[in-house]
Design a protein around this nucleic acid. Structure first.
Length: 152
DNA sequence: GCCAACGTTGGC
DNA sequence: GCCAACGTTGGC
């Protein structure tokens, strides 16, 4: 079981949207590194933090669980989608997505709080210039944040 | 709205 | 294959 952080803009798709839908296809990833994480390393049963970005209170707001391995992202073939990719062929899909399931809300653990813990100093989402929408979370980072949330 | 950081594109 | 230009992200 690996652990991850999934970033999403709440104005696009928030933790409450996921709580309502229960399961969602994590489509729209158009970054090769993030795609490779899903394709090569993510498996059903993996856990993740749900992180709100580009909003008033950026931070961790909940948990998700990966429930389906990466498969071809249908939005790359949809001309009407903002994620349409003219360079993607059905026979050789360029973009993939996993399915994730809602696994609970947390209080907002904001960036300042995350940065205040030495154990999280190297956490990818906290690095300057970080733009990856999916990042791996180390076991130590995962445990530290669980403690912050009173879950350990 | 600003600006730093980064990925991608395309001319050469 | 280099690298400048450009577009996007995202915290503040």
């Amino acid at each position: 079981m690996k652990t991850w952080l999934f970033k999403s803009e709440p104005s696009q798709y928030s933790i409450d949207d996921l709580a309502r839908d229960e399961v969602t296809a994590w489509t729209g990833v158009r970054n090769y590194q993030a795609r490779n994480f899903m394709r090569d390393d993510m498996r059903p049963g993996d856990r993740g933090f749900y992180f709100h970005s580009s909003c008033a209170e950026p931070g961790i707001v909940g948990f998700v669980e990966v429930v389906k391995r990466a498969y071809a992202d249908p939005t790359q073939f949809d001309r009407k989608s903002r994620y349409y990719d003219a360079g993607a062929a059905r026979a050789a899909p360029r973009w993939l997505n996993v399915d994730v399931k809602f696994a609970g809300k947390t209080r907002v653990v904001g960036l300042a709080e995350l940065r205040s813990h030495k154990a999280l100093k190297a956490m990818q989402v906290l690095q300057r210039g970080n733009r990856l929408s999916i990042t791996p979370v180390t076991p130590a980072e995962w445990a530290c944040i669980q403690r912050l949330l009173g879950n350990a």
